[in-house]
Write a protein that binds this DNA or RNA. Structure first.
Lengths: 176, 176
DNA sequence: GGGCGCATGTAATGAGTTACATGATTGA
DNA sequence: TCAATCATGTAACTCATTACATGCGCCC
């Protein structure tokens, strides 16, 4: 949750924006980094405004619907740096949901387990490919770093699956 | 959420248990795999019972407090296999909270960024060490697989930090 | 009899998602 | 005029967490 706050503050620090804009950037450019949904972002922006971290000014200027442009406040900048420092120094526990499945792998016949993990590996490969051709940086070099980090983890995941599959296949045909 | 259901069903498939027992195993042996808290587990068990996936029978046998022993039902086993297959074949999006921080790294002076990432790397190293001396397997070989997988990812994380730090340090002293 | 371990929860709170609602403008 | 896009949400629901509550038995 903190990371979503950091994301919004960071985006507003780079440039004042209205909610729709923010949601567009998230959907189109940052889909790899967060899965925050639109209503969540709108609600968070309101909470940030209530906390005094951002300011809202209505703007039904020339354009069509009235929009609410948010800008970061000095207190918001402080908050941004606080969250940023905390998150950079912190190592998230890194719980992968799929690991629970791995735990019970031996409940299935080896052959099927291999098939399923192959499918998983294929999906990981696809995701890697989609990250690799990500649409260049928009918000500075940090985004590249983050993307690279995500890629490194996914490649490790793929490699681990490779070795696990090799081992599983190795023990499969013994019992026949 | 599905993975928590899978975890409980898997544990009950291996052996009928009461809630307290399950929570103990989770706290003591599976702390690396899930962060589910006690009240959550109790509530989930009730939901599973309501759904007909597990059966509950009260047992105020010899021992002290009355306990509720849960056993998996045939429908529960079906559900278990369904969830297991889905999760084995599925590649979770793998969103790491810390990546958001990385995105805004350039908002800090290089030197400080390096210090903070060093701290993060240290924490990752500690976590790796704690996983490495994990208390052997309890629930079959699958647990070892899952642990190994988690370790592989953490080692990749550590290695990536190493290379990123090297690069950052390389560009630091230019501007002085 | 006082504290610890066993065993089960409840209540309050908050965060997030999905699906839906609303209304204005622009282009075909 | 109809659909798409812009722009903002609300309502209902689910899930999870935290902090607290309860009560029994065992051991010192």
């Amino acid at each position: 949750m903190d990371e979503r706050e950091l994301l919004l503050l960071g985006m507003l620090k780079a440039q004042s924006q209205h909610g729709y804009q923010i949601n567009e950037v998230i959907e189109q450019n940052l889909g790899h980094m967060t899965d925050m949904k639109k209503p969540t972002a709108y609600a968070l922006l309101e909470r940030l405004a209530a906390a005094g971290y951002v300011e809202m000014r209505a703007e039904h200027a020339g354009a069509r619907p009235q929009r609410k442009v948010y800008s970061i406040t000095p207190r918001g900048e402080q908050r941004f740096y606080e969250l940023l420092r905390r998150q950079l120094a912190d190592a998230a526990p890194l719980l992968v949901a799929g690991d629970i499945g791995l735990m019970f792998l031996d409940a299935l016949p080896l052959e099927e387990a291999v098939t399923l993990l192959c499918a998983r590996q294929r999906k990981v490969a696809e995701r890697i490919a989609s990250y690799e051709q990500a649409p260049a940086h928009d918000l500075g070099m940090g985004v590249d770093l983050a993307l690279e980090h995500a890629l490194a983890l996914m490649r490790a995941d793929h490699a681990w699956l490779e070795s696990a599959l090799a081992r599983l296949k190795g023990m499969a045909p013994v019992e026949k």
